[in-house]
């Protein structure tokens, strides 16, 4: 019997998701034994035409990482969708928009102005900006259009499953591949990770006090964190309560508070709003009855960048999706 065909593709991403596949280490041998990788631009020499030449649905599963922010990415994922039985959004950027999604605080014009004119290292006296069409020596060169807004994969094509994380850890990748090969997948649309919050599985959970109260907000660089004690109890914001578990607590174990790359827990619509909600609940809770409006405002203002913090990985998937540019 022919082995199931698998495609791997990247869009607006850093390459860490590709690295995550390599991080399967010896397990990758089991994967290539069981499947045929027919498209993986970062590692193997296949072209778009190879995919175009396939029958619709011929690819068993496409793992697509990265957010979608250019015309080319949009075109490629639509092609892969047509040719694939299953599409898995692989990693935070495809799932939620990820770090590239923070560009939704800007738009094409402001990004181009900054990158091609504003940065101190740029030497561009004529102020040339990328154009989709340029005439060169009697010919026309084209490049894909750069969009104003970064999208999650499921805002561009239907997605069957989500593998969360920046990047997804090897155990979850192997679980997903095994589930696909054995036909033991959960209902469509599922996130292939546990349904618990990170706080539930956190190794520091026992040190979390019964009643948490943040008297002041400290940023990680301002304190030397005790690696054995709940970071929230140390006054540093950790998004564990509003983030899905399954990451292996990699950041926590490295003494870094959670920044939410696994996305919201099941049922939550907007990870940032959920995070904002619990953080505002904990702020100054002990003294709340005595505090004046001005004092509360001062406390709240200790979070200088709430949108950037609470939507660090999920701005394009949020209810508002992007900043409104005026």
């Amino acid at each position: 019997m022919a082995k199931p065909k698998v495609a791997l593709y990247w869009c607006a991403s850093c390459g860490g998701c590709e690295e995550a596949v390599v991080d399967l280490a010896e397990d990758i041998l089991k994967v290539v034994e069981a499947v045929d990788i027919i498209f993986w631009p970062v590692a193997m020499d296949f072209k778009k035409a190879d995919v175009e030449g396939m029958a619709d649905g011929e690819i068993a599963v496409s793992f697509i990482n990265g957010a979608i922010r250019t015309e080319e990415q949009g075109e490629m994922v639509k092609l892969l969708r047509r040719k694939s039985g299953l599409v898995v959004a692989f990693g935070s950027c495809a799932h939620l928009g990820g770090i590239p999604g923070l560009a939704n605080f800007w738009n094409r014009e402001t990004i181009f102005e900054r990158v091609y004119k504003g940065v101190p290292t740029m030497d561009n006296p004529e102020g040339v900006l990328p154009q989709t069409r340029t005439a060169v020596a009697g010919k026309e060169l084209t490049i894909p259009e750069f969009w104003d807004t970064v999208h999650t994969l499921d805002q561009v094509i239907p997605v069957d499953y989500y593998l969360p994380g920046c990047a997804p850890p090897p155990d979850l990748i192997m679980n997903a591949i095994t589930a696909i090969l054995e036909g033991k997948l959960p209902e469509k649309g599922a996130v292939l990770a546990p349904d618990k919050s990170l706080c539930d599985t956190c190794p520091l959970a026992d040190s979390k006090p019964e009643k948490l109260s943040l008297k002041e907000v400290k940023r990680p660089y301002e304190v030397i964190l005790d690696p054995e004690k709940c970071f929230l109890a140390q006054g540093v914001i950790c998004l564990g309560p509003a983030t899905r578990s399954g990451c292996g607590e990699r950041c926590i174990n490295a003494c870094m508070p959670c920044r939410g790359c696994f996305g919201p827990t099941k049922g939550a619509r907007d990870q940032g709003a959920r995070s904002l909600s619990f953080v505002a609940s904990l702020l100054g809770i002990e003294e709340e009855e005595k505090m004046t409006d001005e004092e509360v405002e001062k406390l709240i203002d200790q979070i200088p960048d709430p949108a950037g913090l609470f939507y660090m990985y999920s701005l394009p998937s949020s209810l508002l999706r992007r900043r409104i540019m005026k």
Binding site: F105, G272, A273, L276, S277, V279, A280, S281, L283, G284, I285, E288, E289, M291, D293, V296, E297, L299, I300, D301, I303, D305, P306, A307, G308, F310, L320, R322, R323, I324, M325, K326
Partner: peptide
């Protein structure tokens, strides 16, 4: 004491909305 929570949430949300251009 839900009113105190609401007060803080709305203040923090106002800061976030401002960043979102609202």
């Amino acid at each position: 004491n839900g009113n105190y929570k609401a007060r803080r949430r709305v203040l923090l949300l106002q800061n976030l909305l401002a960043q979102m251009g609202i």
